[in-house]
Amino acid sequence: MKIRFWGVRGSIPSPGPQTVRYGGNTTCIEVRSDENKLIILDAGTGIFPLSQSLFPEFPLQAYIFNSHTHWDHIQGLPFFIPFFVPGNQVNIYGAADPISQKGISEILTTQLQYRFFPIREVELNADIAYESLMESQQVNIADAVVTPVMMNHPVINFGYRVDSQGKSMFFTGDHEPVFNIYEPDDEEFQEYQSIIDEKNKSIIDAIRGVDVMVADTSYTPEEYPSKKGWGHGTYDTAMAMARAAGVKKLYCTHHEPTRSDDALEKVFAEALERNPRKEGDPEYFLAQEGLEIEW
């Protein structure tokens, strides 16, 4: 299995001298199974450079999994060049939206409205298929299986686990650990906490034992209180989740757009100090644009 990060930035592309080492593109992860099947997790602006690397593989078959439909995870989709070339086949998967009651097929239709983009959906030449996934509904792609896991974000957000030939990875998408809305002395506190514990256990069970986990670590614990409810985790919550699930390697991503490379390394070093590795703990890394992991 092989992973390559094409976008590791959260919220909005952040190019410039301050972010040149870790990269300014928003979320996009290329995953390759041992049989070289192309699975793309999220279509942030990182999908544009990814798509330029795919020309030698045309006619191409790509499987794009969308964690959720916020801009930073779909912004690059209209620039996914394989769409424009006949003979390519692209399958797009994601969650339906319970508010609008619309499926995942709405993404491109919405993005390619003529007022906002010069090419209309009907003008795309590739063969494009959509499937709205249900929680836990597995998708088989040759030697790989992709499993959606319901996480916690202001819109429905699927994390995706990819298993292939005994190797595995998990990407959280955007995720904030569920918090208790009651105070400890409210009578509802305990009962609500037990629902949260059950939910957290179901997430940990779904991730258990993966070789690589890529997790949303937008904030430091100091920054978190003023961002509570925005749907993102901290370095410490992701590390705790990775430890609980027996993950081997954790890659921290969704870097804050205002965080310079130096600042990013500093807050990460502090997180490592707060979370010293014990026997059996995961190894912790920062996700970096262009970084490739193969095992």
Binding site: P98, I99, Q101, M134, S136, M150, V178, E191, I196, K199
Partner: peptide, 26 residues
């Protein structure tokens, strides 16, 4: 249309499983 793996029997379950904002907007 929106099949969760488990059935949801209360507002609080909906909140934990779907998130605060989704329930608020629903």
């Amino acid at each position: 249309f929106f099949s969760l793996a488990r059935s949801i029997a209360s507002v609080r379950h909906a909140l934990v499983y779907l998130g605060l904002n989704t329930v608020k907007n629903l």
